[in-house]
């Protein structure tokens, strides 16, 4: 946990929120249809991050860890964490409709719970139609470098591009996740073109 102060004098946990949750989000209008494929954005993000990835490979003595880790590639996440000294972002959810419209949320490795209470990894505090805890999960599988959306344990349903997610569904860039009155656009960082090493 890291407790930081925003410009306006609010304190918040910057591992849970990528920007101050108490500062009002200015009214913005977002039209999903204007995102054609999102390829441009994705490519530029992957490129700029790719350089940093190379840098990390040099500094973290990766080969050493890999031989030690052996076949258990799933453990690389733990290694990434200890090597980088942090739990790096793997993608984002951007609220395009609902009370948090305009705000972005960070997705990290493995299971990310979505809910209304601040104990969730992704906290939609202003949408009272979202379950308090574990309405849904966004999962990043570091082994496959792939994302999935999984339904939660509560009563509230979760939709992917308008279809109910019963168990779990793979997530692709610019899929729209809907829970309660909130719509979230999925924007990956990790995938085929970039991975934290």
């Amino acid at each position: 946990m890291s407790w930081v102060r925003c410009d306006k004098g609010h304190y918040y946990d910057d591992e849970r929120h990528s920007s101050c949750p108490y500062c009002g989000v200015e009214e913005v209008s977002v039209d999903v249809s204007t995102f054609r494929s999102g390829e441009d954005i994705k490519a530029s993000a992957a490129n700029s991050q790719g350089e940093r990835g190379d840098e990390n490979e040099k500094t973290v003595r990766l080969g050493e860890f890999k031989t030690v880790g052996g076949s258990e590639e799933g453990e690389t996440v733990a290694l990434v964490r200890s090597n980088l000294g942090m739990d790096p972002v793997t993608g984002w959810l951007v609220c395009i409709d609902g009370p948090e419209k305009g705000r972005d949320f960070r997705i990290r490795s493995e299971r990310n719970s979505i809910g209304r209470a601040p104990t969730n990894d992704i906290c939609l505090r202003s949408d009272e139609t979202v379950s308090r805890i574990h309405h849904a999960y966004v999962i990043y599988d570091p082994k496959k470098a792939a994302f999935r959306l999984q339904a939660g344990e509560g009563r509230g349903l979760v939709y992917k591009n308008g279809e109910e997610v019963v168990f779990s569904e793979p997530l692709e860039a610019y899929d729209v996740i809907e829970l309660g009155r909130t719509k979230l656009l999925f924007v990956p960082l990790c995938g085929e073109r970039f991975k934290w090493e």
Binding site: R5, K8, G9, H10, Y11, P99, P118, S126
Partner: peptide
């Protein structure tokens, strides 16, 4: 943690409460 803050809109359409705390690291 020597201080905490929290806020919610409740059932109102707008958040009319404001708050701030000075920089404790200054």
């Amino acid at each position: 943690m020597l201080l905490g803050n929290a806020q919610h809109k409740g059932k109102r359409r707008e958040q009319q409460d404001s708050f701030a705390i000075s920089d404790v690291s200054d």
